[in-house]
Design a binder for these strands. Structure first.
Lengths: 226, 226
DNA sequence: CTGCATCCGCCTCGATACTG
DNA sequence: CAGTATCGAGGCGGATGCAG
């Protein structure tokens, strides 16, 4: 019977962690930030998460108003789980944590899972809005089977799902390479040389995109290694 | 042998959670955000955290470069733990989580712990920078034995430890009342009427402070309940 | 096949006792 | 004061069962 484990602290942070601080919970939220997903899809993208645990987490998040069941097709069947407005408010926090955690991303190991849509979160986390002045273009990313792009309009960069209308640059790569670049363990130039990354577009646009994402393109002449 | 449990996901968020996602870790960070603290103080402010667990968490955070031992007095004894620059980068995330979690803060129960310095984090989380235009003053808070203040200069509000130089308002209360007000479960007016809160200063300054913190002062005439 | 519930072994957690 | 050692309880992870 004993209720769930809480911190019993009268504090906003402790209350937040009582809701989303348990193991796997924020990773479930990350998945749902990409849009509603069904139970089996969540299980497939979160290896080592037990099915009983996923069910319990979802039930709890629904109870707390962070997640809701959505009917994607109007039929009663094939329900999915999506974020409520309260859940969507976690986006900047999840994104910020992802950015903070980039420094701990090491080299990929054989046991590591990678998913192309995680790159979307990485792009969103890497964007530097303060460097978007004077830019008015889009950059498209094709990561494995996923396509998304960055759109810069009115000095505000946004990460958007799906292809871009008239991209100034198109990057094509695999999910692992994409995250390795994002973690700074591989420069775009090195990835191109080894054939793991294709960049199509004006050189200037490519450099602007790299700068916007805080990446060392690895293309500057005579650049000394840090 | 058996290493620590990780998510084994090649992703910034998963890596972040591998470092600060375990139970108690972010609460330890919260304590250290208020400045370096010693082992026993951490234990005292975090009831139900086992001493072995605290030792292991600290060791791990030091190993990952989030926490470091600091020598407060130059003597080798009485070491304390403080945040590294990487650890300090967690401040906006911890603050944001605290703000997000405010909605889940219920009524205080007998088993709940409250600490006055948590109010500092609450104030920082509640600040609405976009409402600071045209203000140039300080508000002091005396919560149990803790004193801190909000300073608004050049349209930027900051939470600062210690007393204010020339506060436009001084609030005196206990930690529980302070968090109850922050969670919106008590208006400042209701707290004053019951003698749990004292506000000294011009009425206009009090109202500006409440607005800056997103609080319904409970003082507007003819206000309908939401 | 989807969306869980049940069961079980293990590891983490939390409390207490103990040591330098 | 600053931890280490120990141990019971319970959360977690994996396999399996089962109803719609």
């Amino acid at each position: 019977m004993g209720g769930r484990r809480t911190y019993n602290q009268y504090c906003g942070l402790a209350s937040a962690l009582d809701v989303v601080g348990e193991r796997w919970t924020l990773l479930i939220v990350r998945e749902l930030l990409m849009g509603p997903r069904r139970y089996v899809d969540l299980l497939a993208d979160l290896p080592a998460l037990g099915t009983n645990l996923l069910a319990e987490r979802l039930r709890f998040l629904v109870e707390r108003g962070v997640v809701e069941q959505v009917d994607l097709q109007g039929t009663g069947s094939r329900l999915a789980y999506g974020l409520t407005p309260a859940g969507r408010e976690l986006r900047p926090l999840v994104s910020g944590l992802a950015r903070w955690g980039m420094r701990f991303v090491g080299e990929v190991s054989e046991s590591d899972t990678v998913r192309p849509h995680w790159g979307f979160l990485a792009v969103e986390a890497m964007l530097r809005p303060e460097l978007a002045t004077g830019i008015d273009e889009c950059y498209e990313f094709r990561v494995d089977d996923d396509v998304y792009h960055v759109e810069v309009r009115d000095r505000v960069p946004r990460a958007v799902k799906g292809p871009a209308a008239d991209p100034a640059m198109v990057a094509t790569t695999d999910a692992t390479t994409f995250v390795r670049i994002g973690a700074g363990r591989l420069t775009p130039l090195a990835a191109m040389v080894t054939g793991r990354l294709s960049l199509v577009g004006e050189t200037d646009a490519v450099l602007r995109c790299c700068e916007l994402l805080g990446l060392d393109a690895g293309m500057a002449p005579g650049r000394a290694a840090g």
